[in-house]
Design a protein around this nucleic acid. Structure first.
Lengths: 199, 199, 199, 199
DNA sequence: TATGAATGAGGATTCATTCAT
DNA sequence: CATGAATGAATCCTCATTCAT
């Protein structure tokens, strides 16, 4: 929702602004984020900033949109590349695609984690949309006899999502480390850890 | 680390201060938290505040300490009550004890979630200590033939911890709802969701 | 004093600009008035505005001129239609003409009231010119033996003018209400309110 | 409604602040008034200002209160000194008292005039209260056979009030000049200006 | 002539902390 | 010990005007 002026800027200038915003929103919550720091970092005058964006919230929403694309775009597109993949395969595939190919900056994870706290409507929507996609995959797998029919799909997605964010943010795992752990988690979820016959 | 003066206060006054801090730190991050609001809420003079605490950080660290007790104390104590319980039983038991008996205010969850972001050294320590306790339980269960010997204990704890916080904060589940979901999660982790023979 | 470019605009565009100015100057004093809001309201580019007017003051003076016409034009013209009317009849007639026929927007009154405060030279001139016209009428009525020869003409005009503006602005009287009260005021001024023999 | 801190200040400092506010609110409307100018003029730090007043409105309301006292206090008290005075005598008396004895600064008139425009609820209340006092006096004079029973009391008060403010603000009459004109106005209202038998 | 991007000064307000009483 | 007054830096945001295209 920036002003159209913003989109008429040179790519370089626009990139400076988005970068400055990323850096700021990665390190600070919405309230703490400082327009002053952003413009200083982006090296633009204060007046200009307010020509591009209506206010801090305007920048934030635009930023959320950009970040969310980074996270959900791959999901939406890649999934169709493997029409017969199981839920677990899609999770693995999407994670590998996004992390290995796109080289997501760690600041995105920081910012993403902060968004959880804001519990912004915008973010809730993105999360919901993404969750629904995965739930459908699970239901399909149930129908195909791959996942137990009484498994709670929503809880499954929540387990993976919360572990994923937690691991990448808190443990600051590198890509390889994270993907390795994700495989282990998926395996636990598939097979369980209890010794057979011990329930 | 408050001044000793603080501990000489009447219980009622001290409680007012801690309550005001809880309310503030539940709603705001460290930087956003306002001493002005806290003293107004606790109804103490500004000068007094700085007699009790060196500065905002001093209050914060003390507050973290108090909050963490709320979460870890039960773990440390209760666990010994059931010396033969499995890891899963202890998780369930501790959760039930803490949530049902102690009636933890939702503000604690909010504050707890914020602490994740701060990634404060203090908090990291608390988390580490708690994790270690659980890992030991898992190792014991492996030795007892209850948990598969090649299961990754740390990841197990992380899965449960991240789901737990996520569920209580983001989904704002009530106690019953949360305990119900936790049971499902534990079951998934124990048994897996894959249809047998499908691996 | 706008640029001649302004007068070459289509009537519609010019009207949009004057309307936007009216709305702005009715709600805000000169300093508070925002060119930004005016151009947004008039839907013209900022660059264009500064092509038509030198600056905010330029627009303001032009606007004052337009507004004053609304108020003084009728006076100047209508008076001659009834060459033998008394001062009081002219007052009544002009008020009726202006208010009933021309349907003056309430914004004009708001703007007019604001001008009082500005005490702008421009406005002072308009007021002076109008006052002089009325004083002449009073002097003629004195000569005709209709008004007491020792009545202070200037004060008379001031009484009516101040009541008139006050009533329309502050009490926000509708046209009928205002005309009714004006008649009462004129009657008081003519006849007095003291009970005869009581002086 | 300033903070009690404000009233603990030395008289000199408090006076500096009130003076600075008077000067500012005489020259500028509420919106235009600048806290920056006020504190510079009063020579106090910005932080201090906000310790005394909650915000600009807080200062404004306090200021209105002070100004209104200047105008209405005399009315309320003096009236009772002459229990049998007529409405006209009270008007004259109060005006003389206030203007001659209290030496009201011209800035008060400027500020008072601006308040008219703001049409603030606070001001409306003060005006209403004052109007009611006078209307009662008029009704008493009607009962005493001094004022014509069909005279419209409210309009009478409005005529005098609007002339009074107008004369003092716009014409910037000095005290003597104003009182002289007020007498003329009162006389016109009492006796009328029409030559007898001419209605 | 039409346009809209650039700009920095100025606006109100909040804040954590110090210090004198 | 208790108190609360003092402070200036930092916050977001609006503005009128200029100028290059």
């Amino acid at each position: 929702m920036p002003n159209k002026t913003f989109f008429h800027l040179t790519d370089e200038k626009r990139r400076r602004i988005v970068d400055a915003a990323l850096q700021e929103f990665a390190a600070h919550s919405f309230n703490e984020a400082s327009i002053n720091r952003i413009i200083k970092h982006a090296d633009i005058p204060k007046g200009s900033f307010y020509q591009y964006f209506k206010n801090k919230e305007d920048l934030y929403l635009y930023f959320l949109d950009e970040v969310s694309k980074e996270f959900t775009d791959p999901l939406l597109h890649e999934k169709e590349m493997y029409p017969d993949a199981t839920f677990f395969e899609v999770i693995q595939h999407v994670n590998r695609e996004v992390l290995k190919l796109k080289n997501i900056k760690p600041e995105y994870i920081e910012a993403r984690m902060r968004m959880e706290l804001d519990n912004n409507e915008f973010i809730r929507n993105i999360r919901k949309k993404s969750t629904e996609k995965y739930i459908k995959l699970i239901e399909r797998d149930k129908a195909r006899g791959i996942i137990k029919p009484d498994a709670d799909a929503e809880i499954l997605v929540d387990m993976i999502a919360s572990f994923s964010l937690n691991e990448r943010y808190r443990n600051k795992s590198g890509v390889e480390e994270y993907l390795r752990k994700l495989d282990i988690v998926l395996n636990i979820i598939k097979e369980g850890v209890a010794v057979a016959g011990d329930t």
